[in-house]
Amino acid sequence: MPQLRIAQDEHADQVLSGDPVALIVGMLLDQQFPMERAFAGPAKILDRFGTLDPAALAAADPQAFADLCATPPAIHRYGRSMAARVQALAAVVRDDYAGDAAAIWEQAADTADLLVRLRKLPGFGDQKARIFAALLGKQLGVTPPGWRETIGPYAEDGSFRSVADVRDPDSLQRVREFKQAVKRAAKQQAQAP
């Protein structure tokens, strides 16, 4: 598996690069929170809980797991509620994919099927599914025929729209600037008469 550099932290990026569960949990956590910190969350869970095995995560005592996730530095701004989502996601991976998170994309018939599979995951809407599919394509080589067209703008070559484009501090900053520009434009449009 290629070496990802999304979290901008060597240990966290090694965890993301070596464990598909970590990668999908990082994507789950990537909302209302700085993306590099969200993608560092799986390493925190691994360090505190001892495993990212989906069966173990899903079976953990919810209160104890929420405490673990909310302990500073928390895995997310909303550590307790995200802990429940991590457990729900782990249960889907355990039950629907025999504990193999990579099967979500490795067994998909095509990009459309991959997006359907991703949208069924707890915490994954259409946009998050497209961003994750773009990440898989751009950084992990998961590129079924027509993947760019099916995914849309997030798959554009040379774009800096999302976590799919983060490979180093410079690209992280460019993605952050793109997101800020989109927010400014939306705010201006909302304020227009």
Rank of each mutant, 00 (worst) to 15 (best):
M1K: 12
A7L: 14
D9S: 10
S17D: 12
S17T: 04
V21L: 10
I24P: 01
I24E: 02
M27I: 03
D30P: 09
D30T: 09
Q32A: 11
M35F: 15
R37S: 10
F39D: 07
A40C: 12
A43K: 08
K44H: 15
I45G: 03
D47Y: 12
R48T: 03
P62C: 06
A66F: 02
D67H: 06
C69D: 09
H76I: 09
A88Y: 01
D96T: 02
Y97N: 12
G99T: 02
G99N: 09
A101G: 08
I104R: 00
A108P: 06
D110R: 07
A112C: 08
L114F: 06
R117T: 00
K120N: 14
L121H: 00
G123V: 00
D126S: 07
A133L: 01
G137T: 09
V142Q: 06
P145L: 10
W147H: 11
W147M: 13
T150R: 11
G152S: 11
D157W: 06
G158C: 08
G158V: 06
S159W: 13
F160P: 07
S171R: 08
Q173C: 00
R176M: 11
E177G: 06
K179D: 11
R184A: 15
A186G: 11
K187V: 12
Q188T: 09
A190K: 07
P193W: 13
